[in-house]
Amino acid sequence: MRERVAKGWSAGLAALLAPVTLWLGAFFLIPLLFIVAFSFGTSEVYGGITLGFNPGNYLKVFDPLYLKIIVRSLGIAALTTLICFLLGYPLAYFIVFKGRRWRNALVLLVMVPFWTSLLIRAYAWVVILGGNGIANKTLQFLGITDGPVNLIFTPEAVLMGMTYSYLPFMVLPLYAALEKFDVRLKEAGKDLGASRWQTFLRVTFPLSLPGVIAGSILVFIPSAGEFVIPDLLGGSQTVMTGNLIQNQFLQSRDWAFGSALSVLLAVLLLGAIMFYIRRVGTDKLEGV
């Protein structure tokens, strides 16, 4: 009994954890195991799958065609994360330190896009960026362009759409991290001879790193697996891993290869994130 108390376990806690354990077990862990099993199987001609040990699915990834798509996905995801950070940090900083009584209202505004489904918002961009869309009409009205220009189905359109979708995921953790910040520390920095910029670099920014890490992970992971936005806003040059996986399951019916891609993407992301946390989390920012 004593030991159970010492470990913080009790029947009540176990009872509270049971539903979520069952839920995740049934709808996450078991399907994941299926995917891992499929990834080593062999696809049959009509779409069925034979289980076994076939590393061929993984070797297929090294085909330059697929390799290029994976590298591109990670590149677009990284770029999306970077842009979200560059846009989101000043915004979060502004809301926390200059927002005053508007603080809560401004945070609410950041979350407003969530009130509409991602799919609908992505379609809205199709309408805006299309040949006859508002964007092109405005450009012509202002005399910047003569006729419609190709805005949609470009890598830039995908990048813009992704940044738009994931920006709140960057801003909210940054807000949470900065909000806890004790402004006296800024005064202490200045008191000790650090200019505003030095105080930011040496004090404010390092202390907001947990928010930066959380925000980048929340943006990078879904970005790397994204398939809706490249599907709607991108053309054939912007096929991402997510689209590739979707194709294997729905069109090519090569479930084994699709599963291998999924497992690979998951492992890659996990590795990237662990590397990132190690790097940034323990980076010794002071001590030069």
């Binding site: 004790d182 520390l185 005064e187 008191d191 200019s195 004090v203 202390l207 002071e286 001590g287």
Partner: peptide
């Protein structure tokens, strides 16, 4: 500005930099 004045402050709440160890705090 405060960073150019020949004074230093000991704050009520100390305002020690939590991400730096004692040496780096003092060396700031």
């Amino acid at each position: 500005p405060p960073y150019r004045r020949p004074v230093n402050t000991v704050f009520q709440s100390y305002a020690i930099f939590p991400h730096l160890n004692v040496f780096d705090n003092v060396a700031f």
